[in-house]
Amino acid sequence: MKVIFLKDVKGMGKKGEIKNVADGYANNFLFKQGLAIEATPANLKALE
């Protein structure tokens, strides 16, 4: 799943980066902790 990092995550990515991560990792950790959001077309447009 493609995500946009909202904060730096050690060993994974930096704020503003777009990366592919495992679905479970994104849903169970990154999204719940507020560290990333899904890289949807609307979210990608908002990032620009």
Rank of each mutant, 00 (worst) to 15 (best):
I37N: 03
K2G: 02
F31T: 04
G34Q: 06
K14E: 08
F29P: 02
G13I: 02
F31W: 02
M1H: 00
L30A: 01
A22E: 14
A46M: 15
A22G: 08
E48P: 10
K32P: 05
K45V: 11
A46L: 14
A39M: 05
G11A: 05
F5C: 03
K19M: 10
E48W: 04
D23V: 15
P41C: 10
G11M: 06
F5H: 01
A42P: 06
D23Q: 15
V9L: 07
I4L: 13
M1A: 05
A36T: 02
L47Y: 14
G13C: 06
K19Y: 05
V21M: 07
K7Q: 13
T40I: 05
A46C: 13
L35H: 02
E48K: 07
A46D: 12
E48D: 13
V9N: 01
N20G: 07
K19R: 11
K15V: 09
G24W: 13
K32Y: 10
A42S: 13
Q33T: 06
K7G: 04
A26F: 12
Q33N: 12
K15G: 04
G16L: 05
K14H: 11
G16H: 08
L30Y: 02
K14R: 14
V9S: 01
P41S: 13
E17G: 05
G13V: 03
A46N: 14
F29I: 15
K7D: 10
Y25Q: 08
A26H: 07
N28W: 11
M1C: 13
G11I: 01
G13L: 01
V9F: 04
F5W: 01
K32L: 12
G34C: 12
G13K: 00
N28E: 10
L47A: 07
G11K: 06
A39W: 08
M12S: 06
A36G: 03
I37G: 01
D8T: 10
E48F: 13
I37F: 05
Q33I: 11
A42W: 03
K45F: 10
N28M: 11
K32T: 12
E48Y: 08
E48Q: 12
L47D: 04
T40Q: 03
K15R: 10
M12K: 07
D23N: 14
I18T: 05
Q33D: 08
L35M: 09
V3A: 01
V3E: 00
A39K: 01
N28G: 12
L30S: 00
L35N: 02
F31V: 08
I37T: 04
K7N: 06
A46G: 12
K32F: 05
E17F: 03
F5D: 00
E38T: 06
A22C: 05
T40M: 03
P41R: 07
A26P: 05
K10W: 12
E48L: 09
K7H: 12
G16V: 00
N28A: 12
I4H: 02
K15Q: 10
F31C: 05
A39P: 02
G13H: 05
P41K: 12
N20K: 14
V9R: 02
T40F: 02
A22R: 10
Q33Y: 15
N27H: 15
G24Q: 12
P41Q: 11
V9T: 02
K7R: 13
D23F: 12
K19P: 00
T40E: 04
G11H: 11
A46S: 14
K14Q: 09
V9K: 03
A46H: 14
E38H: 08
D23L: 15
N27K: 14
M1S: 06
D23E: 10
M1N: 03
Q33L: 14
F29D: 13
N27Y: 15
I18W: 08
A42H: 12
A36C: 05
N28R: 10
I37A: 03
I18L: 10
L44M: 14
G24N: 12
K10E: 13
M12F: 14
G24V: 08
V9P: 00
V9E: 01
L6T: 06
A42I: 07
I4V: 09
E38F: 06
K14M: 11
K19T: 08
L30R: 01
A46R: 13
G16R: 04
N43P: 03
I18K: 02
L6S: 05
K7I: 11
K2N: 10
N27T: 11
F29L: 10
K19D: 00
M1V: 13
F5K: 00
L35P: 00
I18V: 11
G13P: 00
I18G: 01
E17Y: 03
I37V: 12
I4P: 00
E17T: 10
K14F: 12
G13D: 01
E17P: 01
K45M: 11
G34Y: 06
L30N: 01
D8K: 04
E48R: 06
D8P: 07
T40Y: 05
K32S: 09
E38V: 06
L35D: 03
I18R: 02
L44K: 06
D23H: 11
D23K: 15
K19H: 10
P41L: 08
N20H: 14
K19Q: 08
K32M: 08
G34F: 08
G11F: 07
E48T: 14
P41H: 11
G34P: 01
V9C: 08
A22H: 15
V9I: 09
P41G: 11
K32V: 11
E17A: 08
L47W: 13
A46Q: 13
A39G: 05
N43K: 02
L47R: 03
A36F: 03
I4A: 02
L47M: 13
N43D: 04
Q33A: 07
K14D: 07
G34I: 03
K45D: 15
L6F: 04
L6E: 01
T40S: 11
G13Y: 07
V3I: 11
K10T: 15
Y25P: 06
E48A: 15
N20C: 15
L6R: 02
N20M: 14
F31S: 01
K19S: 08
E38I: 06
L6G: 01
K2Q: 08
K2V: 12
E38N: 04
L47Q: 09
V21T: 03
P41F: 12
G16T: 03
F29R: 09
F29H: 12
A22D: 13
K45N: 11
